[in-house]
Computed example of a mutant assay.
Amino acid sequence: MQLLVLGGGAFLGRHAVTAALDAGHDVTVFSRGGSAPVDGVAVLTGDRQGDLSALHGREFDAVLDTFSDPDAVAATAGLLSGAVGAYGYVSGMSVYHPAGPRIPGAGDPVRREGEAADDDPLQERSLAKLGAEAAVAEHFSGPAPVFRVGVMVGPHDPSDRFTWWPVRLARALARDADRTVLAPGDPARVVQYSDARDIAAFAVDVLARRAEGVFDTVGPGRAQPLSAVLDACLRAAGGSVGDVEWAWAGERYLREGLRDVEEEARPLWFPEDQIPQDAIDSSAAIAEGLRFRPAEDTARDVLAWLRDEGRTELAAGFDPEFERALVAGR
C-alpha cells in the first residue's frame, strides 16, 4: 500500500507511519516542517490551511488524516477524491452527546450546536471533529473509515498523563521517602485508554483492506480496574505489590485540592469531570481486528522512550511536596 499520512510527526501520526513501515507499506508524509519523523519515508511540504500544491497530481492507495479544521479537511478530501483509494479520519469519543447512553457506540447520538452548557470544554473541539467527519463524507468518493479515539497513551505522548505513573513509581522505588504514592478515587474504578501504537496499527490495517465504518478505538476492551493499571505500571518500573503504599484519596477531596491544577496537567485518572460517559463500546473495532497490548508493556516502553530521549521533565504530574501535602490532608 502507498499510504499518505497528513502530518505524521506528532503522536498518533508518528505511530501510524511506523506501523505502516513495519507492515511493509510505502509511506509519504505531508507536513509544514518538511522533515521525516522516522527514516524510510518520503516527505511533501505544505500547509493544510493554505498550500496543498505538493499533493496535486499525486495518487495513493490510502490517506490518514487527524486534523480538526473542517474547512481544511474538506479541501484535502476534495483534492484527493479520485486520487486516493481510502480516506481514514481520526475523530474522538467526545463527539458523543453528553445526554446519550452512559456507554455509547457508533450510531448513538452525537453533539449538536447550541445544546451544551456554556462551560463545556469539549463542545467546540467535538463539533470541529464532527464537522471534519461530515466533510470527508461529503467531499471524498470512496471508503472513508472514521476512528474515534479516547485517551491515548504510550511513547511520544506529549501530555505525559499516563507517563507520570511509571516515572513516579520508578522514583518511589529509588527513594524510600517517596514510597507513599497518591492515587485517585476508587481502586476498583474501571478505566479506559489505548496505546496509540495499537490504534495506529489498526488504522493502517483497516485502510489497507479498505474497510468502512465508524470505529470506536477506546480500550482496553475489558473491565480493568484502576488498581490493576497502577500495579502494572509498578511492575514495569521494576517493583511488585507491597513495594509502595498507595494513598487512595476521594475524588471530592481531590477536586478541592487540585482546583488550581488544570485537568490536562493532572495524571490519569485524577478527577476528570469533562468526560460525561462511563465507558465507550469498542466492540465493532475489536471485531474488525483491533487489539490492545497490556498496560505493563506500555509503561515499560514509555520508560525506555524517556531514557532514550533523555527527558526528565514531564508535562503532567505533581511536585513531591505538593503530593505529600495532599496525602497528609486526606
Rank of each mutant, 00 (worst) to 15 (best):
M1P: 15
Q2M: 11
L6R: 15
G8Y: 00
A10Y: 06
F11M: 12
L12W: 08
A16E: 10
G24T: 00
G24C: 00
H25M: 03
V27L: 02
V27W: 07
T28M: 15
S31K: 06
G33K: 01
A36N: 09
A36H: 11
P37G: 06
P37A: 09
V41K: 02
R48N: 08
D51G: 12
L52H: 15
S53M: 13
H56L: 04
G57Q: 12
G57Y: 09
E59R: 13
D61P: 04
D65T: 09
D71M: 11
V73N: 10
A75R: 12
A77L: 08
A77C: 09
A83Y: 12
G85H: 01
Y87D: 04
G88F: 05
Y89M: 04
V90T: 14
S94H: 11
H97A: 04
H97P: 01
P101D: 01
G105S: 12
G105W: 04
G107Y: 02
R111A: 08
R112Y: 07
D119C: 05
D119H: 05
D120M: 06
D120I: 06
S126M: 08
S126I: 06
S126Q: 11
S126C: 13
A132K: 06
A134M: 00
A135M: 04
V136T: 09
H139Y: 05
A144S: 15
P145R: 04
G154H: 01
G154N: 02
P155E: 03
R161N: 10
V167W: 15
R168S: 02
R168I: 05
L169R: 07
A170I: 14
A172T: 07
V181H: 06
A183Q: 09
G185F: 01
G185P: 11
A188K: 03
R189N: 07
V190C: 12
Q192L: 00
Q192P: 12
D195H: 03
I199R: 00
I199S: 03
A200D: 07
A201S: 01
F202N: 05
F202Q: 04
A208L: 06
A208M: 07
A208W: 02
R209N: 11
V214S: 07
V214K: 01
V214A: 09
D216S: 12
T217R: 03
P225V: 02
L230R: 08
R235K: 13
A237R: 02
V244D: 07
A249E: 12
Y253F: 11
G257M: 05
L258M: 09
V261Q: 04
V261D: 05
E262I: 00
E264P: 00
L268T: 03
P271R: 01
Q274S: 14
Q277R: 04
I280F: 13
D281K: 04
S283P: 09
S283L: 07
A285M: 08
A287W: 11
A287D: 15
E288S: 12
L290G: 13
R291F: 10
F292E: 01
A295T: 13
D308H: 08
E309S: 13
R311S: 14
T312R: 15
L314T: 06
E321N: 08
F322Y: 15
F322S: 15
E323A: 09
A325E: 14
A328C: 11
G329V: 03
